[in-house]
Write a protein that binds this DNA or RNA. Structure first.
Lengths: 207, 207
DNA sequence: CTACAAAAATGAAGGTATTCAACCTTTTTC
DNA sequence: GAAAAAGGTTGAATACCTTCATTTTTGTAG
């Protein structure tokens, strides 16, 4: 149990983040003003900036929350995957997609992605890149598991292939968030179709 | 020869664009204020907005200029390519890269890319997407030429493969512009290495 | 309990993209 | 060639992110 100061601090940060999720989702990231978040969180504008350096920081904090939950869900799947490698890969991908809109809207994803390209050298851009890397790593972990079980050639580079497969699923996700008319169901359908040929190819791959 | 009004209009637009290229390159896109461009172009702030809807519009106009020159260079190569398909593909890619920094800096590319992800529904985002599509199309045209000459299986989908190859070269370009320490020479080296295995694979591909 | 120090909150001020109502300039009409 | 219409220009006003000097709250020492 921390001091009063620490408790208040933690509480305020939670309130700000929660207000941000709500306002960003309700009004859109662009339309939501810092003043609105501050009001909803019952703090002043200055205090918001005390906790988060920029509006983008708040967004990246939400992305981090989202991706960390996705990673946890994914880990469960990697620890106990379907028997078939191709099926497992598809399951992992769809698991990512299914949990991608819990906190973030498509617009929020677009802004976050734009941020990561726009400012790759800032703490934010780097945090986004780190999350990307973790996801790619998890795909690689899945591949390694199948290698250990002898269901996948052990001489192929799991990290590299994991990166390629992640790039592929990420590219499809970008197509999803940049097209407002595309539903999560559409995305699942596309990805199911795309993964089939990859699955057929997998057993044949040796470096 | 148009009317006085038309001449003035064309002249003003040219001055604004030229001032923008200069200021964006010299100070950075972010740091250059509309007021600065206006002053350099000898017009008022309002007039800048009369010609370009947003600051991003000006940037996209410059990107368009750049990409159109790149497309022209590329066309020359497609019309008269090296004998070997793999070599031709590499040549086209490097031709794109070599002409990518004539008007735009890395920072300007980053902002433009961010814009296209952030606002895919705006005229701007769509114009950027259209340029992407044209480049992918040109890669496909190169493939078709080799198909016509019998150096490439004619039953593979040139448009689809062109898109994949373009995605690949575009992804490498994103890596280039998001890493300030990476030189054009580094990019050429990376791409030369990456294209080799693709070239070896090409003759074997049939749908 | 008081005084002081450290930490944090505050909101007014500053900077820059964008809008718009008023004002010019060019073209057309008669 | 004067009047009206059409087309453009203008910069002051607006909106919103961000900064920072000031004020308030919390923790600590005597």
């Amino acid at each position: 149990m921390g001091t009063l100061r620490e408790r208040k601090k933690a509480d305020r940060e939670k309130r700000i983040l929660s207000a941000a999720v709500h306002k960003f989702r309700a009004n859109g990231y662009k339309a939501a003003r810092i003043e609105d978040l501050a009001e909803a969180a019952e703090v002043s504008v200055g205090t918001v900036y005390n906790y988060y350096g920029t509006k983008g920081d708040i967004l990246i904090a939400i992305v981090t929350m989202e991706v960390e939950e996705v990673l946890a869900e994914g880990q469960a799947l990697v620890d106990n995957p379907p028997k078939d490698p191709g099926e497992a890969l598809l399951a992992l991908t769809l698991c990512y997609y299914d949990h991608s809109l819990n906190y973030l809207t498509k617009e929020m994803w677009r802004r976050a992605m734009a941020l990561s390209i726009e400012a790759p050298d800032t703490p934010n851009g780097q945090r986004y890149a780190a999350l990307d890397a973790k996801l790619a790593q998890q795909v690689a972990d899945l591949l390694r598991r199948f290698q250990a079980q002898g269901q996948l050639a052990s001489d192929l580079d799991a990290t590299a292939l994991g990166r390629v497969l992640f790039n592929n699923l990420n590219q499809s996700f970008i197509a999803f968030v940049t097209d407002d008319s595309m539903t999560l169901h559409d995305l699942r359908t596309v990805m199911t179709a795309l993964t089939k040929p990859i699955a057929q190819l997998l057993p044949k791959l040796t470096s």
